[in-house]
């Protein structure tokens, strides 16, 4: 998924990291994985290597999504615009 650092040089593009878009895509992936059409397919019962398919599928998909999130986050460049110092924090 690596791409050249300045693949887009538009005037007003989204943040250069594309982090927001990727996370949005991960969210959609999660919706697909955990919502009925696919859920119904794997939720009917059945066994695989002695383990219920529903159990295998749900946790497999969950771990996979977490892995995708970790990849997206850890491979993105650091936040380009952290909170500007507004005023010193109160203690």
């Amino acid at each position: 998924m690596a791409r050249p650092p300045h693949a887009h040089r538009g005037l007003r593009m989204a943040s250069p990291s594309g982090l927001t878009e990727r996370l949005g895509a991960a969210f959609l992936l999660g919706l697909v994985l955990f919502m009925p059409p696919l859920l119904a397919v794997f939720g009917q019962g059945g066994w695989l290597a002695g383990i219920p398919v529903a159990f295998l599928y749900l946790f497999g998909a969950w771990i996979a999504l977490t892995l995708v999130l970790a990849l997206i986050i850890e491979r993105a460049p650091p936040d380009p615009a952290p909170l500007p110092p507004d005023e010193p924090a109160e203690r």
Binding site: L23, G24, F27, G30, F34, T66, L69
Partner: peptide, 16 residues
């Protein structure tokens, strides 16, 4: 499980 899948989905949108 939905009680924990929902927050997982929201976590994807936390950055936003």
């Amino acid at each position: 499980l939905p009680i924990y899948l929902g927050p997982t989905l929201m976590a994807c949108l936390w950055w936003i």
